[in-house]
Design a protein around this nucleic acid. Sequence first.
RNA 1: CGGGGCGUAGCUCAGCUUGGCAGAGCGCUCGGUUUGGGACCGAGAGGCCGCCGGUUCGAGUCCGGCCGCCCCGACCA
Length: 583
Amino acid sequence: MRLSQSFGKTLREAPAEAEMASHQLLIRANYIRPAGAGVYTFMPLGYRVIRKIWGIMAEEMDAISGQEMWMPNLHPAALWQATGRWGQMDVLFKLKGSGNREYALSATHEEIVVDLALRDIESHRDLPRMIYHISKKFRDEPRPRGGLIRLREFIMKDAYTLDRSEEALDEYYPSMLQAYFNIFDRCGVKTTAINADVGAMGGKTSQEFTVPHPQGEDVFIDCDNCDYAANVEAAEFVREGEKPATLAELIKVETPDCKTIADVAAFVGVATTQTLKCVFYWWRPSYVEKPGEGRLVFAMTRGDLAINDTKLVNALGGGFLRAATEDEIKAIDAVPGYASAIGMTPARDMASPGVMIVADESINFGGNYVVGANEDPYHYTGANLGRDFEVSRIADIAQADTGHKCPVCGGRIEAKRAIEVGHCFKLGTRYSAAVNATYLDENGQPQLIYMGSYGIGLDRLMAVVVELHHDKDGIVWPDSVAPYQVHLVHIGKEGDGTKEQAEALYADLTAAGVEVLYDDRDGVGAGVKFKDADLMGIPWRVTVSARSLEQGGVEVKRRSESERRILPIEEYPILLNPALLNS
RNA sequence: CGGGGCGUAGCUCAGCUUGGCAGAGCGCUCGGUUUGGGACCGAGAGGCCGCCGGUUCGAGUCCGGCCGCCCCGACCA
């Protein structure tokens, strides 16, 4: 490609709204252009990177028996209604065609795949199968961010497995995880696979591939001593603390202006571990709230810990939570800021009357707590579970955080931010059951198909590659995903013979199949060309100039290194295989 | 959806406090010089100052509403 003919140009300054390095550099270096919030055009260079990543993914998927196909992005509403997600997935873009036909834009493709399975999988002989495709996803994200990190329209590789049984799925699953590691390794991205909550995707297990990054939107827990790692939504930790040897007397004390745990602990003179924190939620079974549906949930944990909403939902067996309103809290005679379970009748389960009180395990690792008196402005001291109040159930609902004890080795864990680049789900029969997608087993009996789904965001991965591979001057692409291998730079003036040499080299390299970006621009200073080359980040820079020719050849420089060397012209065929230059 | 910030030339930004001719640098066009790290001289083009309404003799500037974009949070299938 001749730079003199390329569409678009590099920018000296990044648009003001770009904050992340990848966002700034990809725009400045002419890889992407914004069309709106979370919507980008891939310029010629950017599209070449996407195609490189695409190729790596296709190779790795094919290597584990994947079959590449191409699924639609316009989804008839009926498919989404069949799985129950039409009314549940809030980020689903919906649109109407003529005659009131309704469609969804592809937010994901489980619906398409399970419909295919329904039609085309008939016998156990048709299983197992692994299919995948790379195409656009559309999600009405409330807040796109970070350039290509979080988009409303993005490119995803998603693979789907169809198996006879859970065991068959379990057996295949590790090869998918390995393929994922291979893909990320080949792209120059070191990932950590962590156990994550499955969320509303359904299913039972999921592994999230993350890259630690300060501007990531995921928080995960990492042990500094062993390899335990998990998303905070699923991370376990060891509660520390002791029950008191003797129970103190329950005493009501006046605590003016003490609305927070820290206030109360300081006022009464105890550690926050000797307090109980109470948070009120409104639980409902479906995403869309319906009048008269749902109930209040009273969540409690030791005062030094925070409640994790996802863990709480899981402890309740599913559903959705929002913060309870003041009226809903008052309806059970609790006083916000001074609430406790004292005097309340806990519900036995979600269907029973009383107050649904869920306490974190941590309350068993302490006692003689300071708790609210359900009266403004009073607290009790010396409160103890069993003697002074009861709960509906005790579960793991507190969020793991930095400094907590590792559940595996007993070391200390740390909360870190990360960017999620891939996710593998064992879906089980969540979707096949919804549409009754079955196969006939050896005995002629219909059995539900076991599914798995496995996604990687290509554009997000591209951004992460840049986050990990750049310096002050620009991008430094790994060879594997670089849009071109050689950035050929011509410097010289009319009639000094340099142009002819550069043109000849360009022709030879191109004819030999080397991917060359050729800066043939006339009247552009050497400084500009070098700055652009650094910005664009192509692995090898080859300069043809009067100076290099005087020194006997062309100058070769690796983007990632500062060393430049002269390669004699007669040895130029070595450039036909740039990998040789590494030796 | 809550909090904060921003919207003026392709990009970065001044001008708004205190209403009075629409500005700079970079980029772009033309001519010339230059040619190893974002060069120089000269001449140009380029604007619904986000949109709508209000106040005013007069609004980029003041007031109200809306839209868009960015950041934090919520959400994140």
